[in-house]
């Protein structure tokens, strides 16, 4: 069994230690004896979604996001087919915004992939800081760091989790991120996956199941990861983090 991870546009979308997310996906497969392969795509490369099991879309600056969004329109239908056939996607920060309908900054509108019924508006001030959320996808809190000017409204979609501390999608409705089929969108980096091993495994499981691998994921020794997760959760969310 081998899982192929498609890393989209790492030359443009690469803020916030994204390499850590890729490393977590790869190692947590390898530690279990499952093969992992990374394919990097540059802006004008053709992407064969049928060959991919996980698609990773990171964050970039506004200028870089503009470049990417023009290209994404051309691959929209292939990307949408991949999502509808339960393909796993992790989209972080700028990548998350691009999955939606648009990102509006004053008069300028960056058109998104319209895979999700999600809209992002630029509002004054940035949401910057440590975030702790509760999510049904992880028994421990999910921790990370956010830094975004856009406020994302997810409409009828399911959020990734409920904010315990931090801003989340828009600083107003208590939602963080989005989960749709096997797609995760979130503002959390830090990076996200090394310190949230259960969330990482959720994605891996989704990708493996789709490939017909039905056995349980072998447990790993996550002592260090859990310590790091707990240190952040307890420091920034205190007792609230412990409540289920």
């Amino acid at each position: 069994m081998e899982i192929t991870i498609g890393h989209l546009y790492p030359d443009l979308l690469n803020l916030y230690g994204d390499r850590g997310n890729i490393m977590a996906l790869v190692r947590r497969l390898e530690w279990r004896g499952i093969g992992a392969k990374i394919r990097e795509y540059r802006l004008h490369d053709d992407i064969d979604f049928a060959a991919l099991d996980i698609v990773f879309l990171g964050g970039g600056s506004d200028r870089e996001q503009m470049l990417v969004c023009a290209r994404l329109r051309e691959i929209r239908s292939a990307f949408a087919d991949y999502v509808e056939s339960d393909g796993a996607v992790i989209a972080i920060c700028g990548g998350y915004q691009l999955l939606g309908e648009y990102y509006r900054m004053g008069d300028a509108v960056i058109e998104g992939l319209r895979i999700l019924d999600v809209r992002t508006e630029n509002e004054p001030g940035r949401l910057i800081g440590n975030v702790v959320i509760r999510s049904p996808l992880s028994s421990m809190p999910i921790v990370g760091f956010e830094n975004h000017g856009g406020r994302t409204y997810i409409g009828e979609h399911t959020p990734l989790g409920r904010v315990i501390t931090g801003g989340g999608n828009n600083g107003k409705d208590g939602h963080e991120g989005v989960q749709y089929k096997n797609v995760l969108g979130t503002y959390l980096h830090g990076p996200l996956l090394p310190k949230n091993p259960e969330l990482c495994d959720w994605i891996l499981r989704a990708a493996l199941l789709r490939k017909g691998y039905t056995s349980e994921l072998a447990p790993l020794d996550d002592t260090m990861e859990i310590t790091a997760n707990r240190a952040v959760a307890e420091r920034f969310a205190g007792k609230m983090a412990k409540r289920p």
Binding site: P10, N14, R19, V26, A36, K37, I38, R39
Partner: peptide
């Protein structure tokens, strides 16, 4: 270390100043 295990960059080559 990564390429020896058949993993392509950016796994552990430097990308910090991409």
């Amino acid at each position: 270390p990564c390429s020896q295990r058949g993993v392509q960059p950016p796994c552990c080559t430097s990308i910090e100043t991409r």
